[in-house]
Simulated scan of single mutants.
Amino acid sequence: MNRILNQKRLHQLQQFHPKLENVWYLVASATFSVCNRPEEIPLIYHQALSTQNGKPIDDRAKIIHELLESNRSDSLKADSLMESINETYKNPIQYEVQITKKLREALLITYPLGGLPKAINSLSQLKSVTPSALLPCVNQDVDITNPNLNTDALFQDTLRANPKTIEEYKKVTDDGIKYWNNVYNKVSNKVFHNISKSYPDMIYFIIKHTYGPLFSFNKILNEKEKCLIIVSALVPQDVDAQLYGHLKGALNAGCDKEVVSLIQDMSIMISTWCGVRSSNKISKL
């Protein structure tokens, strides 16, 4: 499969507009993930790591070049590349930690929007080029096949709390309802009941398993960032009603109207590069 990104296109994404300086890599990665081109995400990640405040950092462009030239099926080249990555980022600064955490979270957000398999593949691609010092700490001693396993141990490494009491479970639901109302505002009840009439179990999973624990979680991404990522993940999919709802939701969250339009334009451009065609009519603010 031919690579979509080259150095020119990487710079085009990063310099798309000054107002997108802090979110371009999140939006671009979410769009590539939904377009089922996760192999482009490592380039975006390292392009974001290689610059700060719009300026290149030392010689990190070398890693970008190696990624552009590398054949990921060649294990020797892959090992050499990871040696270079680990050496460059052996003492990561807060800026690099933040970019890595935000990108992981952005790709997680895409899973109920574009599909779980795509999100898994995208996070796997990201992991394959993440410096060892920036990988999440995970307890690998847990044996999931053990019939006597304490299931709480399965999720001890997650950033999200693992609800154990009725009150904690209720809070997840309350958080989901609050986020839902923030997005849909005046039409919250209408959208809720329309989905519920189609299948009550659908709205159950949306509130309790998507809006509650996923969309309302704000320890890594803020409300505006999450809204922009959701919009970018919906643009390639020709789901006009859902896109329009989240365009309005982005405004309800306080996003600048021009920024939301720029996000759409970037996602449309990436979708075109990927050969993912949307209908001629697409919701605009």
Rank of each mutant, 00 (worst) to 15 (best):
S124H: 04
Y211G: 04
C137S: 12
A106M: 09
V191F: 03
P92S: 00
L135P: 02
Y204F: 04
S198H: 05
L113I: 13
S73I: 08
Y169N: 11
K101L: 09
K190I: 01
L113H: 11
I120T: 06
F205E: 14
H209G: 08
L135F: 07
D141P: 01
L76N: 13
N139C: 03
Q140S: 08
V172A: 03
T110N: 02
L116N: 11
Y89W: 00
S188E: 06
K102A: 01
N185I: 07
E167Q: 02
L107Q: 14
Y199T: 07
Y111I: 12
Y169C: 10
W180M: 02
E105D: 05
H193M: 14
P200G: 08
T88L: 06
R160K: 14
I109K: 14
V142S: 07
L103I: 09
I144D: 02
G115I: 15
V97C: 09
I93S: 10
T130C: 07
V183G: 01
L76M: 10
R160Y: 13
V138D: 11
H193V: 07
T158W: 09
L134K: 09
I177Q: 06
V191I: 01
K90N: 08
Y184Q: 06
I207S: 06
E168W: 01
K170D: 10
K197H: 08
L214H: 02
T110C: 03
G114W: 06
E87Y: 14
V138N: 10
Q156V: 06
D157C: 12
K197C: 04
I166L: 15
S73V: 07
S73G: 05
T158L: 10
R160I: 08
T110E: 01
L126F: 11
D174A: 06
N189M: 08
L108S: 14
D201Y: 08
I93M: 11
P213W: 04
D141C: 10
S188T: 08
I206T: 14
S80L: 15
